[in-house]
Amino acid sequence: MTGIPASFSPIQLHNRLNRPVWIGLKMARRGKRQLVMLSAGEESAARLSKNFETFVGQIVREFKLDPEQTDFVELRQESSDSRESGAEAHNWYRWHAHWVGSAPVECKAEPVTSDGARSYLETILTRNTAAA
């Protein structure tokens, strides 16, 4: 569970190999839309790029979310030795998926590059509300 931001709640899920792993989860609502923020921290077994379909399927079922009204973003933290001085310590990725019921298919992530979107996500990240 190391490396998960303090404002995230740790949640245990099962990866694609059905092994239990911990990831960080934070949820926020804006109107009818639900925002789910995820972070694997330093847990290599929880890599979201390989396990996204498995993880979000579990999250959608557990929290009874409407996938069509839910946005998923990932916070990827860089290790301190790979950062240049003054560079941000993390990057945001928005995940897209086609849904068949509560099962995501054809998942892909793209970096969040808009200054407005990044600012909004940083605001949600630093909020002191409960994550889950």
Rank of each mutant, 00 (worst) to 15 (best):
V60L: 07
V60A: 07
V60W: 01
R61P: 00
R61W: 00
R61I: 03
E62K: 14
E62M: 06
F63E: 08
F63C: 05
K64G: 10
K64N: 14
K64Y: 07
L65F: 07
L65A: 07
D66F: 02
D66A: 07
D66G: 00
D66E: 08
P67T: 04
P67L: 02
E68N: 11
E68D: 11
Q69W: 06
Q69M: 13
Q69G: 01
Q69H: 12
T70R: 00
T70G: 02
D71T: 12
F72C: 06
F72Q: 00
F72V: 07
F72D: 01
V73Y: 05
V73H: 08
V73T: 12
E74P: 00
R76F: 07
R76N: 12
R76A: 12
Q77W: 03
E78S: 15
E78M: 15
S79N: 08
S79R: 07
S80C: 07
S80G: 00
S82G: 02
R83P: 02
R83H: 04
E84T: 11
S85N: 13
S85Y: 12
S85Q: 10
G86D: 09
G86P: 05
G86K: 08
G86L: 09
A87W: 09
E88H: 14
E88K: 14
E88L: 14
A89K: 09
A89T: 08
H90E: 05
N91H: 15
W92R: 03
Y93V: 07
Y93Q: 05
Y93N: 04
R94W: 09
W95D: 00
H96E: 09
H96F: 15
H96V: 08
H96C: 07
A97S: 08
H98R: 13
H98M: 13
H98A: 14
H98W: 12
H98I: 14
W99L: 02
W99S: 04
V100F: 15
V100L: 11
G101E: 13
G101Y: 02
S102D: 10
S102I: 09
A103I: 14
A103K: 12
P104R: 03
P104E: 02
V105K: 06
V105S: 08
V105R: 04
E106V: 06
E106I: 06
E106A: 10
C107W: 04
C107H: 07
C107A: 15
C107E: 06
C107F: 06
